Amino acid sequence: MESRLEHLVCLTPDEFKRRGDLSTLRWKLLAHGDSWFSFASKRVNAHANLLEELVFSQPTLAVSCAGHHNALRRMVDLEGSPDFIRLLDGEAVWDGVLLSVGGNDLISAAQVPALQPDGSITPLRLRLLRKQTEWGAPSAGVGRYFSEEGWATYCDYLRANLKHVLSLRDDGPNKGKPVFMHCYAVPVPRPAGSEDADASSGPWLYPALKAYAIPQADWAAMSRLMLSKLATLLKACAADKEGYPNLQVFDSTQVPIAPATLGSSGISGDWHNEIHLNHSGCFKIARAWSTHIEAVLSGKPLVVAAPPTGRGRRS
Rank of each mutant, 00 (worst) to 15 (best):
80 G>S: 14
63 V>L: 04
111 Q>S: 12
197 A>W: 01
204 W>V: 03
227 L>G: 00
164 H>F: 08
227 L>K: 02
174 N>D: 12
290 S>L: 09
194 S>V: 01
193 G>Y: 03
140 A>D: 15
253 T>S: 11
289 W>I: 01
126 L>F: 03
33 G>L: 06
124 L>C: 13
181 M>L: 15
91 E>D: 13
24 T>N: 10
63 V>H: 02
13 P>F: 02
85 I>Q: 15
146 F>E: 01
204 W>F: 13
267 I>F: 14
163 K>Y: 01
306 A>H: 00
112 V>M: 05
315 S>N: 15
229 K>E: 13
201 S>F: 06
46 A>Q: 12
201 S>E: 12
212 Y>E: 03
28 K>G: 00
85 I>Y: 13
131 K>I: 06
51 L>Q: 06
69 H>F: 02
112 V>E: 06
141 G>D: 12
156 D>Y: 10
35 S>V: 07
214 I>C: 07
177 K>F: 00
272 H>M: 14
312 G>T: 06
268 S>D: 12
187 P>H: 07
84 F>H: 06
223 S>N: 06
177 K>W: 00
119 G>R: 04
172 G>N: 14
111 Q>K: 08
301 P>T: 09
106 L>W: 11
35 S>P: 01
247 L>P: 07
20 G>M: 01
197 A>T: 13
244 Y>L: 14
311 R>N: 14
17 K>T: 09
266 G>F: 12
197 A>K: 15
280 S>M: 05
304 V>Y: 01
66 A>W: 09
260 A>V: 10
98 L>S: 05
190 R>N: 04
6 E>Y: 07
127 R>Q: 10
103 G>H: 02
208 A>T: 02
252 S>H: 05
34 D>Y: 02
79 E>A: 14
68 H>R: 09
202 G>N: 11
244 Y>G: 10
240 D>H: 06
224 R>T: 08
220 A>D: 13
86 R>I: 00
212 Y>K: 01
115 L>C: 02
275 I>A: 12
20 G>Q: 13
112 V>T: 14
260 A>D: 01
278 N>G: 10
191 P>A: 09
155 C>S: 15
143 G>F: 11
244 Y>Q: 04
99 L>A: 13
214 I>A: 04
172 G>F: 01
264 S>D: 15
85 I>P: 02
15 E>W: 05
207 P>N: 06
29 L>M: 11
112 V>K: 06
241 K>C: 05
82 P>W: 03
107 I>K: 03
110 A>M: 15
287 R>Q: 15
75 M>G: 13
46 A>S: 14
21 D>A: 08
240 D>K: 10
145 Y>K: 10
5 L>N: 08
100 S>G: 15
296 V>I: 08
159 R>Y: 02
246 N>V: 05
15 E>M: 09
302 L>G: 01
158 L>R: 09
5 L>Q: 15
106 L>Q: 10
172 G>V: 04
83 D>Y: 04
71 A>Y: 10
10 C>R: 03
23 S>D: 13
262 L>H: 08
122 T>C: 12
190 R>M: 09
187 P>T: 05
65 C>S: 03
270 D>K: 05
58 Q>R: 12
203 P>A: 08
11 L>C: 07
